[in-house]
């Protein structure tokens, strides 16, 4: 299992150069059965990462490009009258895939956004009164442009909360960029990627995440973190119970990636920014969400040892 995980990481790092940390986080997010939000400027490799993830894990993959005129039926699917059968037939939309890449999700209107977000939570959609289960496993990898850019509808806190993690890719370092420039388009190498895993392996990995042990002192550490976010004056609001669960589950997945049978504080600290940034808001910051400083504040203020 260890070899499999490192092989997967290696393959991903071969596609997305110089982003080992982010790749690991994205993988941990999927292992923890969470949806992933990637936020960055256009052209930083968001789509590439999500595509590569789906390929390497051997999952079916659909991409939805969100624009301001995308409608819910464009995502979920719609019923069409079939002349030959003489009845209505449901044509599945792009949502029916194991990995859905929702590209530039904050360019769509709230109505379309919420169609996707409902599916994320329930893992099923309801069309014309009939509930349809989505494929298993079901991951949404959404990308979004920074909300300061024009033509965006920022996701509300309630919907942001459904993403287990939010990561930023950032500019590559010069070395990686030089290699990128020499090697040409990375999308070509995407086509060369071989599936390294199948559904059973993925399910086994996810179960292994659930089996990672957690000790009382660590639980107390997470509780101290959450309590600090609820009490501190610089926090507009604290972390929800869903947030603390997300933190623990992500830390477990991270521990599995480190090949450890139990969670240590470093695991929590490694995933903390990705897990809590989009769930927090500074009390001085009424409009947007600039959680980066808050995650640092949490890290440096809360004592690991009780």
């Amino acid at each position: 299992m260890k070899q499999k995980l490192s092989a997967i990481q290696e393959a991903l790092n071969g596609v997305l150069l110089g982003k080992e940390g982010q790749v690991q986080l994205a993988l941990a997010c999927l292992l923890a059965r969470g949806h992933l939000l990637i936020e960055d400027l256009p052209g930083m490799g968001k789509t590439l990462l999500s595509h590569a993830l789906a390929r390497v894990l051997g999952l079916s993959y659909n991409r939805i490009q969100f624009t301001s005129d995308v409608l819910p039926s464009d995502i979920i699917g719609t019923s069409i009258f079939d002349r030959e059968l003489g009845e209505f037939r449901f044509v599945e939309g792009p949502l029916f895939a194991q990995v859905v890449l929702a590209d530039e999700i904050n360019r769509a209107t709230p109505k379309s956004q919420s169609a996707l977000l409902e599916a994320m939570e329930e893992r099923q959609v309801t069309v014309e009164g009939e509930s349809r289960a989505l494929p298993e496993p079901f991951f949404v990898i959404a990308t979004q442009n920074p909300s300061t850019q024009t033509g965006t509808f920022p996701l509300p806190e309630s919907q942001l909360d459904r993403f287990l993690m939010r990561i930023e890719l950032g500019y590559p370092d010069p070395e990686a960029e030089r290699e990128l420039l020499k090697g040409g388009d990375r999308r070509k190498s995407l086509g060369l990627l071989q599936p390294l895993s199948d559904l059973e392996t993925l399910a086994a990995l996810q179960t292994a995440v659930d089996d990672i042990k957690v000790s009382d002192p660590l639980i107390e550490y997470i509780q101290r973190l959450v309590a600090f976010s609820r009490r501190g004056a610089e926090f507009a609001f604290g972390l929800s119970p869903r947030g603390s669960l997300a933190l623990l589950q992500s830390a477990r997945a991270w521990a599995l990636l480190q090949d450890r049978s139990h969670v240590v504080p470093e695991d929590v600290q490694a995933v903390l920014p990705a897990v809590v940034d989009h769930r927090l808001r500074e009390s001085a910051d009424f409009a947007g969400h600039g959680g980066g400083a808050l995650a640092q504040k949490l890290l440096t203020s809360v004592d690991v040892v009780g």
Partner: peptide, 30 residues
């Protein structure tokens, strides 16, 4: 307190006295 945490805290308090303060985010092993 957890007994191990207590033992470690005693240790780190002593070390702070020797000029090796622990940062709160540092785990015991780190």
């Amino acid at each position: 307190r957890h007994p191990v945490e207590k033992a470690f805290r005693d240790f780190s308090d002593k070390l702070a006295g020797f000029g090796y303060p622990r940062r709160p985010e540092e785990s015991p092993s780190a």
